[in-house]
């Protein structure tokens, strides 16, 4: 019983430490961002590294996501002859749910993991101490540009990913179900509202904030050399995935 309580206590304390650490990092990032204290050169470098380089993988994911939506809904579309709803169904699912979540998870696996590893390596090779010894604060120099870059990159990637996914849906709809492009497009434009696009973009950008904070927090708290870096990457990806799913539920309830 004592052992169980001790374990429970340690888990709760550890959870509080991680959540508190992320909240504090978020607070300092926000304060520095408001004061305009961040390194613009680092922002541009990270935008390229996190955004531009992610375009091919996000596009490919989005293309097949659109296709999957069509394949999944195809059986019902054919059964009920509801070809006119294909554009709406694909668009609604992609824009509001599947797009932000899948692109978010892909972004977390590629960019979040890389960011945690990058910061973790900087910690174990004393580069972060090196910055501080040169009188440079790590948050404005390292963290704010990364958080901002991830949010901006994710927003742009979502716009691109949504467009590619809808295009993929159109293509697969034509190839697999014989739904012509005009019919798909008309159904999409008639039923999808700007709000649906906005909800998806809001969610995705918030997911990027979660990915940024988890990866920066776990990256900066690395201890124990290369093994510690591996552990921090693992923790960052798991925490980001969990936060994406939990916050998605909350956003979905709030933005119905």
């Amino acid at each position: 019983m004592t052992r169980a309580l001790l374990t429970l206590g340690m888990v709760v304390l550890s959870l509080c430490r991680e959540v508190g650490g992320m909240a504090l990092l978020g607070f300092y990032t926000f304060v520095n961002l408001l004061r305009g204290r961040f390194d613009a050169k680092e922002l541009v470098r990270n935008l390229y590294k996190m955004g531009v380089v992610s375009v091919p993988i996000v596009s490919l994911t989005a293309l097949f996501t659109g296709g999957t939506m069509v394949i999944q809904s195809g059986i019902f579309v054919q059964r009920f002859q509801a070809y006119g709803l294909l554009g709406w169904g694909t668009g609604y699912a992609v824009l509001r749910e599947v797009g932000p979540i899948l692109i978010g998870l892909m972004f977390s696996g590629r960019v979040g993991a890389n960011n945690a590893a990058d910061l973790g390596s900087m910690v174990v090779t004393e580069q972060v101490d090196g910055l501080r010894a040169l009188a440079i604060e790590p948050i404005p120099y390292l963290i704010v540009p990364r958080v901002l870059a991830m949010m901006l990159a994710m927003f742009c990637l979502l716009v691109l990913g949504d467009a590619v996914a809808i295009g993929g849906g159109m293509l697969f709809g034509k190839l697999l179900l014989g739904v012509d492009y005009a019919s798909f497009y008309a159904s999409f434009v008639d039923a999808i509202k700007l709000w649906d696009v906005t909800v998806g973009l809001l969610k995705g950008t918030f997911f990027a904030l979660m990915i940024a904070l988890t990866s920066c927090h776990y990256g900066l708290s690395v201890k124990g050399g290369a093994v510690g870096v591996g552990q921090s990457v693992n923790d960052a990806v798991v925490a980001a995935a969990l936060l994406i799913m939990v916050s998605d539920d909350i956003w979905t309830m709030v933005l119905r």
Partner: peptide, 12 residues
């Protein structure tokens, strides 16, 4: 202060 770190701390 000029500081030479054990791991060099060169920025990658």
């Amino acid at each position: 202060i000029g500081y030479l770190f054990q791991n060099n701390a060169l920025f990658d």
